[in-house]
Amino acid sequence: MKIDVIKLDAGKAGSVDLDDAIFGIGEIRADLLQRAVKWQLSRRQAGTHKAKERGEISRTGKKMTRQKGTGGARHGDRRAPIFVGGGKAHGPRVRSHATDLPKKVRALALKHALSSKAGGSSLIVLDEARLDAPRTKDLIEAFGKLGLTNALIIDGETLDENFARAARNIPNVDVLPAQGLNVYDVLRRDTLVLTKAAVEKINERLQPRENA
């Protein structure tokens, strides 16, 4: 698959070949994308929520009233969940929400996410993502020429500091290095912008071992 390469000023800078095995998958599998997104979001959950249960409440265990003759229920102690200040019945506990997903499945899901952007004409390849000065105003003007309002921008191994600082103040725009590319961020933005350096890194990362 061949795609035009453009500059920040919307000028043309040649073209680049995209691997069909990575960017040209025809039938996008929504189940793979859902599994990858669920795997990512579950790993982000802190799992630090906690409520004291009956055995953790600091109250006396002495029987409140005599067993019979009071005309009321026969309660044992004030730590029961039915009382104000009592323990929580089956409350949340500190735990990990992370799930398992095979590495090959994660790689395949990323290929499908990239192919969905390429197939939907939502993929742009930039010559480079660099600015002479970290001015947000200049970057907004450049994005206006490119028609970008909601985008994920992936650069090479490292980010240009001026570009990253300028993009930091623009809403609905994320900038990541190539190693930070992930399914969730690709899908949550309308347009995927890759630099030529990012395309090379993606090919290295997702290329089959036998062809590497």
Rank of each mutant, 00 (worst) to 15 (best):
Gly147Asp: 15
Leu123Lys: 02
Asn172Ser: 08
His90Cys: 08
Ala109Leu: 04
Leu139Tyr: 09
Arg95Trp: 12
Ile124Thr: 10
Asp160Val: 00
Gly76Glu: 14
Ala133Asp: 12
Asp155His: 09
Ala151Thr: 09
Gly91Phe: 03
Ala166Val: 05
Leu126Asn: 01
Asn150Gly: 12
Leu101Trp: 03
Val125Asp: 06
Ala133Cys: 13
Val173Gln: 04
Gly86Glu: 03
Ala73Cys: 03
Asp100Cys: 10
Ala167Trp: 02
Ala80Tyr: 00
Leu159Cys: 02
Ser115Gly: 04
Ala107Thr: 14
Asp160Gly: 02
Glu161His: 00
Leu108Gln: 11
Ile154Tyr: 07
Leu123Ser: 07
Thr158Pro: 04
Arg66Lys: 13
Asp100Pro: 05
Gly85Tyr: 09
Ser121Gly: 08
Ser116Glu: 11
Arg95Ala: 09
Ala113His: 00
Leu152Asn: 05
Asp127Val: 11
Gly120Trp: 07
Pro102Asp: 15
Ala113Tyr: 02
Gly72Ile: 08
Lys103Asp: 07
Ser96Asp: 13
Gly144Gln: 10
Ala109Cys: 07
Gly120His: 06
Ala129Glu: 01
Lys62Gln: 14
Leu148Lys: 02
Thr99Ala: 08
Pro92Tyr: 07
Glu141Gly: 09
Leu108Trp: 03
Ala142Gln: 15
Lys145Glu: 09
Gly91Met: 04
Lys111Gly: 05
Val84Arg: 15
Leu152Cys: 10
Leu146Val: 02
Lys62Cys: 04
Gly86Thr: 02
Leu148Pro: 04
Gly61His: 11
Gly61Tyr: 03
Thr136Cys: 08
Asp138Cys: 04
Ala109Pro: 05
Ala167Pro: 01
Arg165Gly: 06
His75Thr: 08
Ala113Thr: 01
Lys62Asn: 12
Asn162Gln: 04
Arg135Thr: 07
Arg135Ala: 14
Arg135His: 13
Arg95Asn: 06
Phe143Gln: 06
Ala80His: 09
Arg78Leu: 15
Lys62Ala: 15
Ile82Gly: 07
Gly120Lys: 03
Arg130His: 14
Arg165Ala: 11
Ser121Asp: 15
Ser121Met: 09
Glu141Leu: 12
Leu114Trp: 02
Val125Leu: 11
Thr99Gln: 14
Thr70Cys: 01
Ala80Ser: 10
Asp155Lys: 02
Ala113Pro: 03
Lys103Pro: 04
Gly69Asn: 05
Lys145Cys: 09
Leu139Ile: 12
Pro171Phe: 14
Leu126Ser: 00
Ile140Ala: 13
Lys63Thr: 03
Ile124Gly: 06
Leu159Arg: 00
Ser122Thr: 09
